[in-house]
């Protein structure tokens, strides 16, 4: 009976094109899109040099130093440089300021502008040093993950984050939202007048979501491997354990939250209160190292942040589970709390 219920869930799920898109295609597109945008070697940085007609020996030295960097140097007369700036095309511009120089960074294009500015600054220091007869070179920069994965790039960082986020959205929307809708539309009531034991219905649903999540994660990992050469550095047992824990935690959250809403509209509001902060603050797309310390601390209390950290640790860096005990304990605590609330408050109509 459980098997039948489980197979029926799959059959009906596979007919739902919207669910199929969000479950399987959307995460892939996101991974592909963001992965391509933030390739490990970013786009070539352009620095505009607003250069007056008259140049000095120091200017020439500066230009030589800049030419040796990876920056694309665009020399323009000040008037034209200003026009380009006002069109918003310039990310960073270097210009004369008295005896020295000044770098202007476009506040709308800080990612490119700041990077260009940093390199220009280095070039300036080298030019100064050479001018003073010293011979120095730039400090080499090596991109590496905390677990010494040398090939680490943004897609590698992104993949576990997206898998974690998918688990969360599966729990909140495919479990929580669906249950509210079933209750609201009376699907549960129709089942309640049959002798079908309730646990079979719920177990069938949970098993189905679990297999969806496993399949989905597998597709993502496969895509990561094929498109970006990302591989699992940890043990597969540890990876499966972490994935199962996440599925359990976020599904339980979905069940628990669904007991607080009568209609799908209210559920949408309630679930988004949890979903959006977690999505943006849990290090799915970017880390919070620039955020205030209190926020960084607060976010650890939400389950997604420590979860993704543990998942990254295992997957990207081959860390043993023991090294993420605290984070996993936080997730486990959430799981038990949500499960307790779900069991206590669950109702059919």
């Amino acid at each position: 009976m459980l098997l039948r219920q489980f197979l029926m869930e799959w059959k009906l799920y596979s007919r739902d094109r919207v669910a199929m898109f969000w479950t399987f295609l959307f995460p892939l597109l996101l991974l592909l899109g963001l992965g391509v945008i933030f390739r490990s070697r970013g786009p070539a940085l352009t620095l505009v040099w607003s250069m007056p007609a008259q140049t000095t020996a120091a200017d020439a030295e500066m230009e030589r130093a800049l030419a040796q960097t990876e920056l694309i140097l665009l020399k323009l007369p000040p008037v034209e440089a200003e026009r380009r700036w006002e069109r918003g095309e310039t990310a960073a511009q270097i210009e004369k300021a008295g005896e020295g120089y000044r770098i202007r960074v476009n506040s709308y294009l800080t990612a490119q502008g700041q990077s260009a500015a940093q390199i220009a600054q280095q070039a300036f220091l080298i030019a100064q040093a050479k001018h003073n007869g010293m011979n120095i070179d730039t400090l080499p920069i090596l991109m590496e993950s905390p677990g010494h994965a040398h090939a680490s790039n943004y897609a590698t960082f992104l993949l576990p984050g997206l898998i974690g986020l998918n688990l969360l959205s599966m729990g909140l929307f495919s479990v929580g939202m669906v249950n509210v809708a079933y209750r609201e539309k009376g699907k549960f009531r129709r089942l309640a007048v049959t002798p079908l034991p309730k646990w079979i219905f719920l177990a069938g649903q949970i098993l189905h979501r679990l297999t969806v999540v496993i399949l989905q994660s597998f597709v993502m990992l496969l895509a990561g491997w094929l498109m970006f050469g990302i591989t699992n550095h940890g043990s597969y047992v540890a990876l499966m354990l972490v994935l199962t824990l996440g599925t359990g935690c976020f599904m339980a959250m979905g069940f628990a939250l669904s007991s607080f809403a009568q209609t799908t509209e209210t559920y949408g509001a309630i679930s988004n209160i949890f979903f959006f902060p977690m999505m943006f603050l849990s290090g799915v797309y970017f880390t919070l190292d620039a955020a205030p310390r209190w926020l960084q601390t607060a976010v650890v209390a939400l389950p997604l942040s420590p979860y993704i950290k543990a998942l990254r640790g295992v997957f990207n860096d081959g860390a043993p589970l023991g090294s993420h005990l605290f984070g996993l304990a936080v997730v486990l605590a959430w799981t038990f709390a949500a499960f307790g609330i779900a069991v206590k408050r669950f109702r059919w109509s």
Binding site: L12, R15, D16, K185, G186, K187, R189, R190, V193
Partner: peptide, 9 residues
């Protein structure tokens, strides 16, 4: 039931 709700598909 007064409104029997089944799965759409």
């Amino acid at each position: 039931l007064q409104s029997t709700s089944l799965f759409n598909k």
